[in-house]
Design a protein around this nucleic acid. Structure first.
Lengths: 158, 158
DNA sequence: TTAAAAATCACCCAAAAGGATGAGTGATGA
DNA sequence: TCATCACTCATCCTTTTGGGTGATTTTTAA
């Protein structure tokens, strides 16, 4: 079976065109026989093709899209955030753990973090568990708080 | 002085139309005099009006409007935190909910919050659930993040 | 080369968080 | 007085988090 879909539109146009031409023939016959003025005949043709053109253009042209960009202002405190490397080393926090911490601070779930880092959920759990030890906290919300105080994370991650 | 702008487009169309008709007249004259076949004349008319229709349609169709909201960060000097009351009212966040949010941001568990506020765990859960709706988030960590961005909480709670 | 640290993943279990829904009470305002 | 809203609490159920333990593979540094 041939795939007809791509050709359907084209077929549509062809058929429409053919119908129009037939109509014109008929009009020609009728009008000329009845000895109407040529101008009327031509005007009708013009009008029909004008309409056909409009219709065709509407069918074929991609819809114009006008994009309006609305800027929404969000206030962020000025800070040149300097990561506190000393504290990092002191607490023996690894790069990977810091990554996990950062994503955590952005409100991501462990599963989301796992997907983002292309590792398993279990791995993320392990990292977070170690983080909690090293930061001496019990929950991720505390971890984020503490990390910000220790300048391991920027105050408000934008 | 009359304001012409609104009429310019219409004028344009009118002039184009007139030009087309003149062209047709001329063609009529030329072709008939030179005894060409009527069909050619008509075809040309049809084609011209077809094109005109297409052009017209393209000119006239209103573009579809698409709105994109872009978050624009505005860096402000480190602030003496001012609670954003407007946002509070906009989102319909109650005093109690804000209290819960604040304690959440300090890393407290729902149970701890409940004890602090002398209410039941279930109550805290209800508050937090409503908060998540109003802040359009899924998790408490996101709630805290968002609240800080919206200035419902101080950047880093000391 | 070898030992230590980092990163990966698994399994089990328990606690916490979250979703959905219903419902009672008191304060407020039309 | 009646409706509305904030606050309170409950139940049931699911998902997420967190704790503990162990194990394999890479990387790093001695």
């Amino acid at each position: 079976m041939l795939k007809l879909k791509p050709y359907r539109e084209i077929l549509n146009y062809a058929v429409s065109m053919a119908a129009l031409l037939l109509l014109l023939r008929w009009l020609e016959f009728r009008l000329l026989v009845l000895e109407h003025r040529l101008e009327i005949y031509i005007s009708i043709i013009a009008l029909l093709f004008l309409l056909f053109g409009i219709w065709l253009a509407n069918k074929v042209t991609k819809p114009k899209v006008e994009t309006i960009v609305v800027e929404k202002e969000i206030r962020v405190p000025i800070e040149n955030f300097m990561l506190n490397e000393t504290e990092l080393q002191l607490r023996n926090i690894s790069k990977r753990e810091l990554e996990v911490l950062t994503l955590m601070a952005q409100g991501m779930s462990n599963l989301e973090i796992a997907q983002q880092l292309f590792v398993s959920l279990n791995t993320v759990k392990t990292h977070s568990a170690k983080l909690f030890e090293k930061l001496e906290v019990k929950r991720r919300t505390q971890a984020i708080e503490t990390a910000k105080k220790l300048q391991l994370l920027p105050p408000t991650l934008g």
